[in-house]
């Protein structure tokens, strides 16, 4: 057994990781490294003031425009259709991994939009599946050649955040097997043959994120805020890293003090440093912001 492990001081000492350590682990962004302009991973934040109305309903037209704008910015293509055709081919079998957690599910409008985008890329309807639970019994997901990962952002009792990395936990037969050390090694799921290398697009839904949780359901409407955004990219670690920063910023604003995520979402950091799945360091992420700017927090 290791006697020391990784301590708070190790994080603080690592100059190159100071931004990650402080932002993801320790609840402060005071040491963020000045952005460098090369070799960065793109993450697009798109927001629209009317994405979700006062009743909590999402408008399909607005969501589709947001997604179109995001994929254009992400891909560099002139039109969203061209971007989708880069990611999805007509002969793909496509699993859209959604999330149905009842207090904060993926809006059905967004699921429908994603299905349509895949259809318009030439994929037959019978080769498209949208599902959260029971993936291992679904032939589309077990034989998928392409995955689209979509879920809302929220805090989580055991892993700190429920975000894109964690969304694939239903690809394993016994999710609790990944609960050791507060889900530190969630990224290893992404190395399973069923999943590895198949994810073409990741969408972290930040329309109404949950920034703090209480009670057995870890849900309290007081801690949901209408942010009206989507975070879109190809690197789930980078998007989750941005998502963590967003939650930290909101918590700081709401509570009036640094209130680190509880527990710290170290699986996001370890997805980078231990599993090399993607990039968690904010200094290596280019955040492209589109649309509504009010109270953007990032």
């Amino acid at each position: 057994m290791r006697q020391k492990g990784i301590t708070r001081r190790d994080f603080l000492k690592q100059t190159a990781s100071a931004a990650v350590g402080s932002a993801l682990y320790l609840g402060t962004t005071s040491q963020l490294i000045a952005a460098m302009k090369q070799d960065k991973i793109k993450v697009v934040l798109v927001r629209h003031k009317a994405a979700v109305d006062s009743q909590g309903n999402s408008g399909r037209a607005v969501l589709e425009q947001m997604l179109d704008d995001a994929v254009v910015a992400l891909s560099g293509e002139a039109k969203p259709e061209l971007a989708w055709k880069k990611w999805i081919q007509a002969d793909d079998i496509v699993g859209i991994k959604t999330n149905v957690w009842s207090p904060l599910p993926v809006p059905t409008e967004l699921e429908d939009i994603l299905r349509d985008k895949v259809l318009k890329s030439g994929v037959d309807e019978r080769r498209i599946g949208i599902r959260d639970r029971g993936l291992l019994g679904d032939q589309i997901f077990t034989s998928a050649t392409a995955l689209i990962n979509v879920r809302p952002l929220r805090t989580h009792y055991w892993s700190g955040v429920g975000s894109l990395l964690k969304n694939y936990i239903t690809f394993v037969p016994r999710p609790s097997a990944y609960h050791d050390d507060t889900c530190a090694d969630l990224a290893s799921i992404w190395k399973m043959p069923l999943v590895e290398g198949k994810t073409r697009l990741n969408i972290l839904v930040v329309l109404t994120p949950l920034f703090h949780g209480t009670g057995p359901h870890h849900f309290n409407p007081q801690y949901v805020w209408t942010y009206q955004g989507l975070l879109v990219g190809t690197d789930p670690v980078a998007i989750d890293s941005v998502g963590v920063r967003l939650l930290q910023a909101k918590r700081r604003e709401f509570f009036g003090e640094d209130r680190p995520l509880n527990p710290p979402p170290k699986h996001v950091f370890l997805a980078d440093t231990r599993h090399h799945l993607g990039v968690a360091d904010p200094a290596k992420i280019e955040l492209i912001k589109i649309g509504w700017e009010e109270e953007v927090l990032l």
Partner: peptide, 15 residues
Amino acid sequence: HVWLNSHYFVSDENI
């Protein structure tokens, strides 16, 4: 020990 880290991260080991 995990609940200590929840409120103030010290170490990923139970030191």
